[in-house]
Amino acid sequence: MKTLIFPESDESAGLASRYGYDKWLVGRFLKYVPDIKEFLAKMEMPPTQYIRVNTLKTSRVELESRLESKGFILKHTVLPEVLAVEKAPISAGASTEYLLGHYYVQDLSSCMAVEALDVEENHVMLDVAAAPGGKTTFIAQRMKNTGSIIALEPSERRARSMSFNLARCGVYNTCVFKMDGIHAEKLGMKFDRVLLDAPCSCEGVIAKDVARKTSHRPQDVDYCSSRQEKLVDVAARMVRPGGILVYSTCSFAPEENEMVVDRLLRGFPNISVEPFEHGSAGLTSFGDIKFDNQLGNARRLYPHIHDTTGFFIAKLRVS
């Protein structure tokens, strides 16, 4: 599927010029982002920083007390383990508590993907594109370091980075395989839970990397969506009956999100999209394309509505 490009309008040209985006991108945002002006204004602001309490090592109350005594101002969020950092006297990635693995600097949206997994103790879990390990370490703490997590990461450099995070967080129920998720079936296993946080065009993190306003190209979306379709097919085959597959990206592009899941639903009649309480409803159409109505159960997270980076989550039950 080629990335959809819409004819330029006065509105898309004006907003693109005002906020410094390529016109094609704003033309697309107009089709699927609610309250576009608030959205573009929010993307100009530094994103809220979040930390996730590592309950393998401490409690939220204890961490709050320690960081607040150092001058941090923290705010609770919809997830009990996740705190918004309203003020940090030092970098959140340089405190003693960080070094001791008491927390992980991680966006709320990323934690939502783990929330959607509904992991339980002693589950057997597959994390298809795992590095640098933010979600993996969160999954491990939700599983209380029981069961097993198989994490796949093809890059040596990223696998090394992941090993630091697993060690810092005290995770020992995880095995990392240097493997592309495309080849996951070589593992010869079925899993209770599978997370595919798919490599994507990262449209959702433009606020963190403003160069993407103009460096992002339709071909990036084409490339990513093609790869995501292959990965999600493999991921779906790794889930045992009754299990859950969570598909997520940090992109807004429907070609990387609803279209990938819609295609999956057509190929796998035993898969359904389950509701998830956080975020806004997924799209059920884009341009002239209609998606399976179940896509309304998928979730979109927007910076100006949910105060997170842009994110997409589909919680898929395999029957």
Partner: peptide
């Protein structure tokens, strides 16, 4: 299975 990394060193 000989993974790249297993457990905690």
């Amino acid at each position: 299975m000989q993974p790249h990394l297993a457990g905690l060193e």
